[in-house]
């Protein structure tokens, strides 16, 4: 997206307090995710390398805002560092899925015919499985770990982007501006990337923003089920699981990572809504005419 688009999106978001909340949450999440290792109150606790058996199950206090867990580690530090892993997962899963799905949908949609049919049937094979089930199966096969979690989720995810792009490309390729590009003498590859893809990406951008939240949620789900990230990595889903067994005595161990997941996913959803609104060229025109941008 061009700089101008960003300006428009920003001005739209500024006008809407709900969108603004989404932006603030996502921005905060990214800042924490990037800076986490440098702002931890208890770095050793966060990485899970130490035990403080004398500090087990301390309720939230000034010293430990989110309390301590069953090994006496500071939950606040662990949740902060968890943001980093969730950020890596969100960007990794969506990025990898886009990298496979977008070219697949673009080529299948633009070329059509037999090539298109074959590519889309392959896509359909993946779509036939419920995505979370497929991800669980893949994660269990690949073994636990951050990279394997990302791969498992991306594999169950890319077909949705392929479908989305395919449908878009199919309708765009018969528009007169694509004919005009052919008449100018542009090569099929140039037409695909310059004229078709940029116009097909709007719903993909929105979907990708939404999916960042879902990827965090599903990765947490995988960890919770025991096929995701390996302990003692402070991944949010894993943190929820760790507190699960002692929820009766120490509710804070599961609650705070759970809240972190909730708030972050909500933030991405709100932001995706704002993106959807802002990326409509007709709406842009209205904004320009009414002088609101």
């Amino acid at each position: 997206m061009a700089l101008e688009d960003f300006k428009i999106i920003l001005s739209l978001i500024k006008q809407n307090p709900v969108s603004l909340t989404g932006l603030v949450i996502v921005a905060g999440f990214i800042v924490v995710g990037v800076l986490a290792p440098y702002i931890l109150p208890y770095p050793e606790d966060a990485w899970g390398e130490v035990y403080h058996l004398e500090k087990r199950f301390l309720p939230p206090s000034l010293e430990h805002p989110f309390g301590t867990d069953d090994m006496g580690r500071d939950v606040f530090s662990r949740v902060l560092l968890g943001a980093r892993f969730s950020l890596i997962i969100a960007v990794g899963v969506v990025g990898l899925a886009l990298l496979i799905g977008v070219p697949m949908g673009l080529i299948a949609g633009y070329l059509g015919g037999r090539v298109g049919t074959i590519l889309m049937r392959i896509t359909d094979m993946f779509l036939a499985f419920p995505p979370l089930l497929l991800a669980i199966a893949l994660a269990a096969t690949l073994g636990r770990g951050l990279v394997n979690t990302i791969i498992a989720l991306a594999i169950s995810w890319w077909p949705w982007y392929a479908r989305l792009v395919y449908v878009q490309v199919n309708s765009i390729k018969s528009l007169p501006y694509v004919d005009a590009a052919k008449i100018i003498g542009l090569s099929p590859l140039a037409i695909m990337f310059k004229h078709v893809l940029p116009n097909a990406l709007t719903p993909v951008t929105v979907q990708a923003a939404l999916d960042m939240g879902s990827a965090i949620l599903e990765a947490a789900g995988l960890s919770f089920l025991g096929v995701g990230v390996k302990p003692p990595t402070p991944e949010w889903g894993l943190l929820v699981t760790e507190g699960w067994s002692s929820i009766n005595v120490a509710w804070w161990i599961s609650l705070f990572p759970g809240l972190a997941i909730l708030v972050t996913v909500l933030g991405f959803n709100l932001l995706a809504d704002a993106l959807r609104e802002a990326s409509d060229p007709r709406l842009r025109r209205i904004l320009l005419i009414s002088g609101r941008v």
Binding site: A2, P176, D179, A180, I183, P198, N199, P281
Partner: peptide, 14 residues
């Protein structure tokens, strides 16, 4: 070269 009926469809909006 060619000129089509609806200029809003024949010009890439991006």
């Amino acid at each position: 070269q060619a000129v089509f009926q609806n200029p809003f469809l024949s010009l890439n909006p991006r």
